[in-house]
């Protein structure tokens, strides 16, 4: 799963969001590192909807303009959980190995 997809699904795991809401949430989750543009976001939303990972939730009109909210589907939640578990296992392995590095333990000898 590519990072923007993971971030969009993670944003929607926090509740249904409209396009601008997803952009701001993704920026926050990524610590300001990823700022999705509208073209990229809507291409991703179209693909994720096609794959059944997200679905349009509800619509509202704000200042005369349509806002469509998107929500994570059960399949999307499962895929995100699998990906999160995969990343967690990797991160855990990396942390264990780093902890075993002698120079990080203060031994001073090269790895």
């Amino acid at each position: 799963m590519q990072e923007p997809t993971f971030l969009i699904l993670t944003a929607l795991a926090g509740g249904s969001r409209h396009g601008y809401g997803i952009i701001t949430d993704v920026e926050r989750i990524s610590g300001g590192r990823v700022r999705l543009r509208a073209g990229t976001l809507y291409a991703a939303l179209d693909r994720l909807q096609g794959d059944g990972l997200i679905a349009a939730d509800r619509e509202e009109i704000v200042d005369g303009r349509l806002r469509r909210y998107y929500a994570l589907t059960d399949t999307g939640a499962e895929r995100l959980a699998t990906e999160a578990e995969r990343l967690r296992a990797r991160a855990e392995l990396a942390t264990r190995r780093l902890a075993a590095l002698p120079r990080l333990r203060g031994d001073g000898s090269p790895a």
Binding site: H18, G19, A38, L41, R65, R68
Partner: peptide
């Protein structure tokens, strides 16, 4: 078809950002 469904919504996002 995409414009029919998403144009207004995308414009909102583009102008908001």
């Amino acid at each position: 078809e995409h414009r029919r469904v998403h144009e207004d919504e995308m414009l909102g996002v583009l102008l908001a950002t």
